[in-house]
Simulated assay, not measured.
Amino acid sequence: MQFIGINHDGGAWAATLFGSRVVPLAPVQDFWADPAGWQEKALALASGTGAAGELARAAVTEVPLVPASARVICVGLNYKAHAAEGSYKDQELPPYPTLFGRWTASLSVGNVPVPVPAGEAGLDWEGEVAAYIGRRVESADEATAAEAVFGYSVFNDITARRAQKLTSQWTLGKNGDFSGPLGPLVSRDEAGDLRDGLQVRTRVNGVEAQNGNTRDMIFSVPAIISLISETLTLHPGDVIATGTPEGVGYARTPQWLLHPGDTVEVEIERLGTLVTPVGDPSLRSRA
C-alpha cells in the first residue's frame, strides 16, 4: 500500500493512494496512533470491501505524512563510497553512525520548490530512503527493530553546505526551508527489505548524479533503530533518513550545486520518483 498526507477537512490527513486517486483515511495524528489498523482498512478499500470518498490526486494539496511531534533522525556518511568522498577519505570507517536531527518544519513533498538561501553558492542533493517507525521501540534488538518499520519513502536531504560547514554541528545546513521533501510512503510488505538492495538514483536536470544501492549501507536500518532506541524511545511516525550514496555535488571538482531553475529527481526502486524544483530566496516567504 501507498500513503500520502493531504490537506483535508481543515487539517492534515493521511490518505491511501490508488494511482491518480486518493482516499482520505484519518487525521495524521490518528493514523499514526494505529498505522497497522489503518493499513488493514486501506487494504479493504483496495479489495472493494470498504467505502470512502475518492478524490483526484491532482485536486488535493499534499503535505508530509509526518506528525508534528515526530523526531526526524538522519544518518550521515552511511554508504562506503560516500564516506570515502567525504569525512572518511583514507580513514577507517566509524564504529557508530553519525546521527543528526531535522525539524518537521523543514519537511516538504514532491514538486514543491526549495529556495536557495541568500549567501549559499547553491544547494546540494542527497537522495536516500526514509524509514517510518510503526510501533513504539525501546531498547530493541535488531530483529525487533526490523519489525518496527512500517514503510519507506524516497527522501532528498537537500543541504545548504556553507551553513553546514560553519561548525562541526550540521543542524543549520540540514534544516533549510522546504529542504526535506518526502515521497509517498510505501508499506514495508510492498517495499521489501533494504538489505536485499534497492537502487538509488539522483538526476539533476536529467543528468545522473548518483547511482547507488542500499545493500552498500554501512549500518543497516535495524542496526540504526536498535542503537537509537537504547537512548531514546521511538514512536509511530518518527522518521529515520538512512543516508545517501556517493555522488553529492560538494565533493566534486569543480563543485556541482543546485541553482534556481534546476530540477532534481530522486528515483528509488519500488518507492518511486521524487521531483523537486529549485527556486530563489524569495520563496522563503512561504515558510
Rank of each mutant, 00 (worst) to 15 (best):
A42C: 10
V239Y: 03
A131S: 10
A145G: 09
S69Y: 05
G50Q: 06
S106V: 01
S106H: 04
Y79D: 10
L258G: 07
G19S: 09
P181I: 00
S47Q: 14
I224W: 01
G206T: 03
A287T: 01
V186T: 15
G247M: 10
M1Q: 06
S139A: 14
R71H: 13
I6S: 08
Q39A: 12
V112E: 13
F219H: 10
T16A: 13
V66R: 02
A84W: 05
A209C: 07
T61S: 15
T244E: 07
I6N: 08
D216M: 04
L77E: 12
L274W: 01
G243N: 06
R284V: 03
V23D: 04
V116M: 07
S47R: 15
A51Y: 05
A163D: 10
D238T: 01
L107Y: 02
M217H: 07
K41M: 09
E85W: 03
T61L: 12
E147I: 01
L274V: 03
S226N: 05
E147L: 13
N111P: 00
L93M: 15
H235Y: 13
T49K: 15
N175S: 08
Q2L: 11
A287C: 09
W38I: 00
S87E: 14
T98P: 01
V109M: 09
G50P: 08
Q2K: 15
D141I: 00
T263Y: 03
P117G: 01
L283N: 00
A191C: 07
D90Q: 05
Y96K: 13
L185S: 03
T167W: 05
T276Q: 14
T244D: 07
E126F: 09
L25A: 04
Q199T: 13
Q169H: 12
A148F: 08
G180N: 07
T98F: 12
A209G: 00
L232P: 00
P184A: 07
V66I: 07
A84F: 08
T159E: 06
P184W: 01
V248K: 01
A14S: 14
F219T: 07
D189F: 00
Q169E: 14
A143S: 11
L45W: 06
L257V: 09
E92S: 13
P254C: 12
P236C: 11
A223E: 14
D177Y: 02
V75A: 08
Q199G: 09
I73W: 00
Q91S: 12
S168R: 15
S282N: 00
T49G: 02
P113D: 08
P245Y: 06
P115C: 03
V72L: 11
H8L: 10
S226A: 15
Q2E: 15
E147W: 03
A130H: 05
P35D: 08
R161G: 06
K80V: 13
A46R: 15
L257P: 02
G37Q: 10
I240F: 04
R21Q: 13
V22Y: 06
D90E: 14
G50D: 12
G279D: 13
L172V: 03
T104W: 11
G183Q: 05
A191L: 09
W13Y: 15
G206I: 05
L25S: 01
E62R: 05
R286K: 11
G53K: 11
S168L: 15
G176P: 01
A59V: 06
N111R: 13
V63R: 13
Y79M: 08
E138A: 14
